[in-house]
Design a binder for these strands. Structure first.
Lengths: 139, 139
DNA sequence: TTCTATAGGCACCAAAAGGAGAGTGTTCGG
DNA sequence: CCGAACACTCTCCTTTTGGTGCCTATAGAA
């Protein structure tokens, strides 16, 4: 019986039991992509670019709000690396850099739209659930 | 001129310039909800429950894969608090706890579906973009 | 009797995320 | 000549995240 359990555990580690149709590598890549996308700032920056079109570095920072220069730099670099945005440098002084969504970025923005709608639709219910939870369990 | 800049910065901090139609509180709540959802495990757990129905603690851990007990406990507690899942304790020995999606959770799963599809559709393009970026810029 | 399974709690520790603030190089406006 | 503007980079620091291992209770199995 221990042998069976071990075999099952081994298969589960390779992800064969939950998604029999997709390969583990694809699953891992999809998770990785989702994890990249699911950080605090990526979708907010994408939304800013969706609403305002091409923007410059400090404009993004102002529109998103509450992001440090460091995180803004890091996030736009990652997004450029992933092919979600393009970065166009104009070699003038003072420097001028434009950021624009790619088609890939626009598709992702559209795909994420459902989550925005969900959040705007149900945030009051989430608040209510949290209040009920606090009243029920914790201090 | 400094005064004007300061006033603009103050307005931007309150989020009045980017979404003139929604109140700052709603915007903050929506961001908060999105941030909750955008962690590494919440959507994976929701997916597991969507596919398998009601599950027990260790079952979720096995299906999701690669999550520590600590993070699993923490994540399901947060999800219960937010009203995404229900937690039913059967006072027997050994302990038995069932987790089930709520309607709120099911709606979120449906809303997030677009992102899963995007990831599965475009992960190859993301990979290609990353390879091109590395070839172009980095080592 | 000893082992195992369940659903965690708790303490300790490493790594990563993220903020604050200063520096950089050049050009233009005052 | 002083300061502002841009798009960063760098260092220092704190907070958060997340992993590991050890602890609990007790029923039933070996």
């Amino acid at each position: 019986m221990g042998a069976i359990r071990d075999a099952v555990a081994a298969m589960q580690e390779q992800g064969r039991l939950e998604h029999p149709q997709v390969s583990p590598e694809v699953d891992a890549l999809v998770r990785d992509v989702i994890a990249q996308v699911a950080d605090k700032w990526t979708m907010l920056i994408l939304e800013a670019l969706e609403e305002h079109g091409t923007l410059r570095f400090t404009q993004i920072g102002r529109i998103v709000g509450g992001i440090s220069q460091k995180m803004l730099t890091k996030t736009v670099r990652q997004m450029e690396c992933d092919g979600l945005i393009t970065r166009k440098v104009h070699p003038v002084i003072p420097p001028h850099v434009d950021y624009t969504q790619t088609e890939l970025g626009r598709e992702l923005t559209a795909a994420f739209c459902g989550v925005w709608v969900w959040a705007e639709t149900y945030y009051a219910q989430v608040e209510a659930a949290r209040a009920a939870f606090r009243a029920r369990e914790g201090r």
